[in-house]
């Protein structure tokens, strides 16, 4: 048995190494002096300095953050409301509606992205940041519903009954009892939604208007134009930010774990 455990642990370490090595390589190369990624590495921060002067990346960063912020606010509010409705009430078509929240996860983003492109073009919404917000909200909604519902699963509905019996109205109960109790779940969901939006490439790629892009789209275009360590530098910052956000989520939400 101990032998098996030992194998198991070694194997786990191998998987972690496999998952992280490429990322670490990419990060290490962002500190390499050579434009052509010449090895061995000569340490330098010149590519980070170059970032400071790259106005295209600046506007892409601002765009990314704007879209992420707006879509996080919207999807967190709407998703929490949906999770509450599913928790509180039994109604006809509930099963159906629960399933219908998931297409954004289960249909390839390629298809969703192109479909949005076609439709938004058709009805005159067009491309641009507003279109991206529309798309990102739809993508993060299911995650918000899942995370908030997970928190609601351990909610004791007697708390709401108790508040009502003490004279609190429907809205007082929701705002003073239910929402504060849900707060860790809501924060986790919001961070999650933020990360989803920040990392979203496919949808943004199809909905980006010429000259108005987000970070992932900008990185993709840059890679296709030709590799430079500047891309490593910006990628390093992006991945650092996502990891921090998700560490934040894990403070409030146990991924897949039992409560």
């Amino acid at each position: 048995m101990n032998f098996l455990k030992w194998i198991g642990r070694t194997y786990l370490i191998c998987i972690v190494v496999f998952l992280y090595v490429p990322i670490l390589v990419m990060v290490a190369l962002s500190f390499n002096e050579s434009q052509l990624y010449r090895l061995p590495i000569e340490w330098s921060i010149r590519w980070y300095e170059a970032l400071a002067n790259n106005s295209k990346l600046h506007s892409a960063t601002v765009n990314s953050l704007t879209v992420a912020f707006l879509s996080t606010c919207l999807s967190t509010m709407m998703g929490t409301a949906v999770a509450l409705a599913f928790y509180r009430y039994d109604f006809r078509a509930k099963r159906l509606l629960q399933i219908l929240i998931f297409p954004p996860i289960t249909i390839p983003w390629l298809i969703i992205g192109t479909a949005m492109l076609v439709f938004f073009f058709w009805v005159g919404i067009g491309r641009g940041l507003h279109a991206m917000v529309l798309g990102h909200v739809a993508l993060s909604l299911p995650y918000v519903v899942i995370v908030v519902s997970a928190r609601l699963k351990s909610f004791d509905s007697a708390l709401e009954d108790a508040a009502r019996s003490l004279g609190a109205s429907y809205w007082q109960t929701t705002l003073w009892v239910t929402v504060p109790w849900l707060m860790p779940g809501i924060i986790a969901a919001a961070l999650f939604a933020f990360a989803v939006s920040l990392d979203q490439f496919v949808i943004s790629y199809f909905l980006a208007a010429p000259g108005v892009t987000t970070l992932p789209v900008e990185i993709y275009t840059a890679i296709r134009k030709g590799l430079t360590p500047e891309i490593n530098a910006i990628s390093t910052l992006v991945i650092l930010l996502s990891m921090l956000l998700l560490l934040g989520v894990s403070r409030f939400y146990r991924f897949g774990g039992r409560d």
Binding site: V25, D199, Y220, I223, N232, S235
Partner: peptide
């Protein structure tokens, strides 16, 4: 959950 694009890019480095 971190950037898919960046991770693919990492592999080109390797």
């Amino acid at each position: 959950w971190s950037n898919a694009l960046v991770r693919i890019f990492s592999w080109t480095m390797v």
